[in-house]
Design a protein around this nucleic acid. Structure first.
Lengths: 256, 256
DNA sequence: GTCTATAATTGGATAGAC
DNA sequence: GTCTATCCAATTATAGAC
């Protein structure tokens, strides 16, 4: 019943959680490589050996961080999608709704300074740019369910879009978002001065959603140059052509 | 006159270039931290000490890599923008044209397997996710001129868009592109199976340009929910309201 | 569960012969 | 310019006392 918040609330948490919190901070700020266990345990005011006692290794610690945060985040995403689909009663959803269901929880988490979610979100952005197989497998296994659910929803919402094109556009969207999320103050490059400080994450979301919706629903690339939208052959080309339009959406999500 | 290509063409290049080439490969693949000078010199078949003789330090080597590649890349970008502006004879450019001028050279470089450009492009994507001040300053100083030129061009092309909004949309675009470019096979997450192998960089560009153009020209977020575009107060709010519309675009780009 | 002490390895950098 | 040999700092991980 009690909410059990993560933040460095006060000072006296059990060692395990203090390690997790400090690790989140330092990994987000300096990356997995450059943040050492020494720096991390010093910040958490715990002993170096405690990391290995509680987690076993550095990568196991990284895994634990992601498990702690990603599970509720993805649950929230799926919950919002469920709500939308319940309300739609079988009809396809709007792209904007789907996008908000996917990125909204991330945003809210990144706004939540008190539970330290914003730190994890930065960490997540960093993980997206990581190439070590350990990290990539971590992300992949955490994402496979949500991605499949959202892909299916978008697929229904955009019937004229080929499967492949949709996959790429989801990729572009994830890229735009993960870049913003990583918050490597890359905005400095573009929005030189006042902008980067004055912006609340909330208003960033107000900006990025229309951007993504427009990109997602843009005219298909093959169909000439102009604004016309081709509704030609793709409709029959894709998979699961006669699948359910009903309400049994929560069944069988494992197949990827 | 002779083209002077970068690739590990054959085997006998001077030590300096062999180091640069191998460093590019390993940095792109494993990141700046995880790729050691030892691994790098072994791959280049040069002595470990040669790195310090020729470059001085590891970060100096990183700097050299970027200088070698970024200068021609940005020159090409500016050249294409110049060509567009010459052809437009004072009128604003199209967003699509500007986007292609900015991302086209990156794409072409990422397709150019023979000169090793594709490796550098991956490295560039990695650098975008880096947080070390050294790397960020490196990117910033390399980008400041092009970003300013392209920002100005987009600013003219989209007169109804507030400066701040434009900055963010450029940020989103850069994010989508850098994610694709980094090529951390993150597509695996979404385009699960066949897609990721069969796709040429060229066709990726055909896909991403319409996406970005649509996002860039999307309805402004503040203006209600529908598809209407507000052309209201922003027009007078922005800077340099009475600047040149003529052909003197190449002057005075230093001011950031 | 927590601590000290230390192992075992790896990293970037340098000195100095050739 | 290139090489060998080495230094020195920093890392993850572990053993074993408490």
């Amino acid at each position: 019943m009690h909410p059990k918040k993560y933040p460095p609330s006060g000072d006296s948490l059990n060692t395990r959680e203090r390690i997790l919190n400090s690790a989140e901070v330092l990994f987000a700020e300096h990356g997995f490589e450059r943040a050492s266990l020494r720096a991390l345990t010093a910040a958490a005011q715990v002993n170096l050996a405690a990391v290995h006692y509680h987690f076993g290794s550095k990568v196991a610690l990284i895994r634990a961080i992601f498990e702690r945060r990603l599970a509720p985040l993805n649950a929230e995403r799926l919950g919002e999608l469920d709500a939308l689909e319940d309300a739609a009663r079988g009809r396809p959803l709007t792209p904007a709704g789907i996008i908000e269901a996917f990125f909204g929880p991330v945003l809210r988490m990144s706004m939540n300074l008190e539970s330290g979610g914003h730190r994890f979100i930065r960490l997540l952005g960093r993980a997206h740019a990581e190439s070590r197989p350990v990290i990539r497998e971590l992300l992949e296994s955490a994402y496979v369910e949500v991605v499949e659910r959202f892909r299916a929803a978008l697929y229904r919402a955009l019937p004229q879009m080929p499967e492949k094109e949709l996959a790429w556009r989801m990729h572009f969207m994830l890229g735009a978002m993960s870049y913003v999320i990583a918050g490597t103050d890359a905005v400095q490059l573009i929005a030189s001065y006042e902008v980067r400080k004055s912006e609340h994450p909330e208003s960033v979301m107000k900006r990025i959603v229309p951007f993504l919706v427009a990109g997602l629903t843009a005219p298909l690339p093959d169909a000439g140059t102009a604004k016309t939208r081709r509704i030609e052959p793709q409709i029959r080309t894709r998979g699961e052509p006669r699948s359910a339009r009903g309400a049994e959406r929560r069944i069988e999500r494992k197949a990827a």
